[in-house]
Computed example of a mutant assay.
Amino acid sequence: MNPSEPDPTVSATTAADVALRHTGEGVVIAARGEFDALTTPALQEAIHDALAERPRVLVMDLSETAFFSSTAIGALVDAELTAGEPTSVRLVASPPIRRTLRLLGLDRHFDYCDTTDDALTTTPG
């Protein structure tokens, strides 16, 4: 490969944004964009920071996530496994992400909500 040509294995368009927001009810992590091995560490850091506060509710808002790799899915599973009491982990996710988690058999580990507001106010059931 010519050094002046872009490497086809590296995506120049991979973009991800993670925002952490505190509310009276809990913590919301809004993840937008594409999450792969290069961008998931920012998500993992936000999850770690949020769980360190031991919120009543941790909402993972994935409604604007275009791609979620196995590494990112692992971060979700890790959040659920390490949250412990009193934290309830809830997902706001697009149908493709919900379908992926269902196909992997992981859907039963999460509480799904349609909106962030619902996730913050719904009683776990």
Rank of each mutant, 00 (worst) to 15 (best):
R99A: 10
D7K: 07
L120Q: 08
G24T: 07
R56Y: 06
E5M: 10
T87C: 13
A79F: 07
A19K: 11
V27D: 08
I47M: 09
T23C: 02
V57P: 01
L101F: 08
G125L: 12
A75E: 10
G105P: 11
D107L: 10
A50M: 00
E64W: 00
F67L: 10
H109R: 15
E34S: 13
T115R: 05
T122H: 05
L103A: 13
R102V: 13
L62P: 00
F110M: 11
T40K: 00
I29T: 07
T116D: 02
A37E: 12
V59T: 01
D111M: 13
S4H: 08
L104Q: 14
A119D: 04
V10T: 12
R90E: 07
T121G: 11
L20F: 01
V27I: 15
S88W: 09
E53P: 00
A12V: 10
M60E: 14
I47D: 01
A19I: 09
S94P: 01
R99K: 15
M60G: 09
S88V: 15
T71Q: 12
A31T: 06
E64G: 05
A66H: 14
E85D: 15
S11C: 09
L120A: 08
T13C: 04
A19C: 05
D117G: 07
H22F: 10
V59S: 01
A42V: 07
T9V: 13
S4Y: 11
A15S: 11
M1S: 11
T40A: 04
V92Q: 00
E25D: 15
G105E: 09
D114T: 06
T65V: 11
P86G: 07
D49L: 08
G26P: 08
R56E: 13
H22A: 12
P86Q: 11
P124N: 06
S63R: 04
A37M: 14
L101S: 00
S11V: 05
G26H: 02
A15G: 06
I29Q: 02
T100P: 01
M1G: 14
T87L: 02
S70A: 10
P8N: 01
S94G: 13
E64F: 00
E5C: 04
I97P: 02
L101W: 05
V77P: 05
L120V: 10
P96H: 00
T23R: 08
